[in-house]
Amino acid sequence: MMDGWPSIPYMQWRETCTALHLWCQIIGKYRLAHTPWVNHSWHATLYVTPRGLTTGPVPDRVLITVSFDFCDHTLVVEAEGGARAIVPLQPMTIAEFFSWAKESIQAVGGRPTINGVPNEVADPIPFAEDHTKRPYDADAVRRFHQSLVCVSRVFNQFRTAFLGKVSPVHLFWGSFDLAVTRFSGRKAPLHPGGVPNLPDSVAREAYSHEVSSAGFWPGGLGAEDAMFYSYAYPAPAAFSQQKVDPAEAWFDEKLGEFLLPYEAVRQSNDPERVLLLFLESTYRAAADTGSWPRRELECRPGAPRIPRPV
């Protein structure tokens, strides 16, 4: 058992993180291929579990769940009726993982329909053609998973203080970030698209309505260490000039987002409180500069066994 917020310096496990990102894309694409479309691509994401990450139930010919177990370091494929297949997580090529994942899904009665090209990465190599041996640092993956557990707990608490439309806390495998998103309820202007290796139609559907979105990256893709972010779409003119908490947070002009280093949260005396300060203050920056109807959308944070007043 691991307590607290672990250290996850990106450069020390960058190659393993890259491999894990591509593995998650493969499994996420399986869910995407068989699940009816849900608003903002929420049908395609992965979810944090006590042992790793999961697709949740996928409606294939039979109901199938595909899960990363970062405690035993296995990929577990399970189907209704009890069929089960396991793939060890270890150093391997992306092509090998792609092949074993498809074989395992087929072995339990599923159809391994998986688009073969990575999304949202520069110069993507088709999975079946990626024969570079990738490392697997099991301890780093275990620590990353524990960080996801800690972050998802805070994100889920933050989610409860909103009566308007709000997303689940889920991991987007394209950009490899854990995210939670609040909506003003108003339509947004057409998104310009242009996300690397992502159809414009997908980006435009994802950003069809005004959002304040926050999330967590392990590093890479513009954030060279583990980082929290928060942005608004469309971004109000004064959004970037707003003062947010804690003091270690800043607005990154290149990314167009407020950022807060994971290490600043981890090393604080109260990581949960510091992260909530960031989530709440950046949301207020978006809502206030965007003239959201805050009184209609907000409520006190949820608590177990206490119904909301009506």
Results as ranks from 00 to 15, higher is better:
211 V>K: 01
173 W>G: 00
160 T>V: 08
182 R>C: 09
180 V>N: 03
157 Q>F: 12
198 L>R: 14
220 G>W: 04
177 D>A: 10
208 S>M: 07
170 H>S: 15
191 H>M: 03
161 A>E: 11
184 S>C: 12
201 S>N: 11
176 F>G: 02
173 W>L: 01
224 E>M: 12
206 A>Q: 09
216 F>W: 13
220 G>S: 06
220 G>P: 04
184 S>A: 15
206 A>H: 09
205 E>L: 12
209 H>F: 03
224 E>G: 00
155 F>D: 00
201 S>H: 14
223 A>W: 05
195 V>L: 15
186 R>T: 04
183 F>L: 12
152 S>G: 05
206 A>N: 10
210 E>Y: 02
192 P>T: 10
159 R>E: 00
223 A>D: 06
189 P>K: 04
202 V>N: 09
218 P>V: 12
216 F>G: 03
209 H>P: 00
163 L>Q: 06
178 L>G: 04
153 R>T: 13
167 S>M: 09
204 R>V: 07
216 F>L: 13
190 L>P: 00
202 V>G: 00
201 S>P: 00
226 A>T: 05
159 R>M: 05
164 G>M: 11
167 S>T: 09
222 G>Y: 06
216 F>Q: 04
165 K>L: 07
223 A>M: 15
179 A>F: 00
223 A>T: 15
211 V>Y: 10
221 L>I: 14
162 F>L: 04
170 H>Q: 15
203 A>I: 01
208 S>N: 13
198 L>M: 15
220 G>N: 03
181 T>A: 12
197 N>R: 13
170 H>W: 06
152 S>Q: 13
162 F>S: 09
221 L>W: 15
213 S>E: 09
165 K>G: 08
167 S>V: 06
187 K>F: 10
185 G>H: 06
159 R>A: 04
195 V>K: 11
223 A>F: 12
193 G>W: 03
183 F>P: 08
225 D>I: 14
226 A>G: 14
160 T>S: 15
222 G>E: 09
215 G>Q: 09
213 S>Y: 03
199 P>S: 09
207 Y>L: 15
178 L>Y: 02
163 L>G: 10
198 L>K: 11
193 G>H: 03
160 T>W: 08
207 Y>I: 07
167 S>F: 04
223 A>R: 11
203 A>E: 06
210 E>C: 13
183 F>A: 01
172 F>A: 03
213 S>P: 02
210 E>M: 11
172 F>Y: 14
196 P>W: 01
164 G>C: 05
